[in-house]
Design a protein around this nucleic acid. Structure first.
Length: 332
DNA sequence: ATAGGTCAAGCGAGG
DNA sequence: CCTCGCTTGACCTAT
């Protein structure tokens, strides 16, 4: 096995025994480093608009990709220094990657080498790296061109994870939503399952599904009954979304169901966020919108689960949360 | 140098 | 019909 999750966990367990474990994580952007470095802060999100891509093409995309990759290493180091072992990788590491072969970038070899170092570092330090491709990924679409674009985007994520050297399993999950119903959840789920079979092992082995945040779409219960039970895709339970689409289950029931879908030896993931409208005391803001910070105690019950905090203030929100409750970022 | 407008992709909800 | 919200603000141009 090129990347042994078991070894990492046993290693950390030497310190703490075999108590319940939780890693807290943040998504994509590091605002602590931004606060220190200002405009020149490390970022994995350099991008460009379409017009610029048309003018400058793959060579400029390659340049940005290399810089993004180098800064990924800096951010991973920051994570270790701050004892954060769960991190969502940006989907924008390689700008416009759907428009070219990654391997034909001029800086491909150097990028591969930098990403491979990132992977080694993450493995040595037990950082869990995951991703969350955008909402335009619709594997359930009746429109073939939408499906083809989705497959392309997902395969791009898989290829990048392979370059980093992440295992082709749900430890390094690529997480999406079903995200649409087209007036028939039954049909949408069938289309999803059919198109799931078209993915390479690099993607299908890592893919997870998250419950939607609209009543008409897929609750955790729906995902279990209509997708997991047929094709075995593990479920990421988002507590905030559950408030808008609960399928008749309590948080606890939905968590129990979702976590039961994960393979043995791989810690399930839960998403946590709070409403911006509550935080700002402004009911004109949609309740689905994420707050800057999270302040309520996160309930994990008896479950062994990693918690991704989705808050606009990113790592600042995570560090703030941990300080409120005097928690370690992990008790691994 | 900074502010403000703009920007690939798909959906559904709400005004 | 338009805007927002979601993965994740960042880029570009005019001042």
């Amino acid at each position: 096995m090129p990347y042994s999750v078991a070894v990492i966990r046993i290693g950390h367990n030497l310190f703490d025994g075999f108590e319940k474990m939780t890693r807290f994580g943040y998504a994509c952007i590091n605002l602590s480093l931004a606060a220190i470095h200002g405009k020149s802060a490390p970022t994995t999100n350099r991008s460009m608009i379409k017009k610029t891509f048309e003018q400058k093409g793959i060579s400029y995309a390659s340049k940005l990709s290399l810089e993004n990759s180098k800064d990924l290493f800096t951010i991973l180091k920051w994570n270790v220094e701050n004892e954060i072992f769960f991190f969502r990788l940006t989907s924008n590491l390689f700008p416009w990657a759907s428009e070219y072969q990654i391997s034909s970038m001029p800086d491909y070899e150097e990028i591969r080498s930098v990403l491979s170092e990132c992977g080694n570092y993450a493995r040595e330090n037990g950082i869990r790296i995951t991703s969350h491709p955008g909402p335009f990924n619709k594997l359930c679409s009746p429109n073939e061109s939408v499906v083809l674009n989705t497959i392309k985007d997902l395969e791009m994520h898989g290829e990048i994870f392979d370059m980093i050297g992440l295992p082709q399993n749900h430890w390094s999950k690529i997480n999406i939503h079903v995200g649409a119903a087209y007036d028939s959840k039954v049909d949408a789920a069938a289309t999803f399952r059919r198109n799931f079979a078209r993915l390479s092992p690099s993607v299908s082995g890592r893919l997870t599904l998250e419950n939607d945040d609209k009543g008409s779409l897929f609750s955790t219960k729906d995902l279990y009954e209509m997708i997991y039970s047929e094709v075995g895709i593990p479920i990421v339970h988002d507590q905030h979304h559950h408030g808008f689409c609960d399928g008749g289950l309590t948080q606890y029931e939905a968590m129990k169901l979702a976590f039961s879908t994960w393979p043995k030896g791989i810690t399930p993931v839960m998403h946590y966020s709070e409403s911006k409208s509550d935080e700002a005391k402004d009911n004109k803001i949609k309740p689905q919108a994420h707050s800057d910070y999270v302040v309520n105690k996160i309930e994990t019950h008896e479950f062994d689960v990693d918690v991704m905090i989705e808050a606009k203030a990113k790592d600042l929100a995570l560090l703030n949360y941990l300080s409120i409750y005097k928690l370690p970022s992990t008790n691994l």
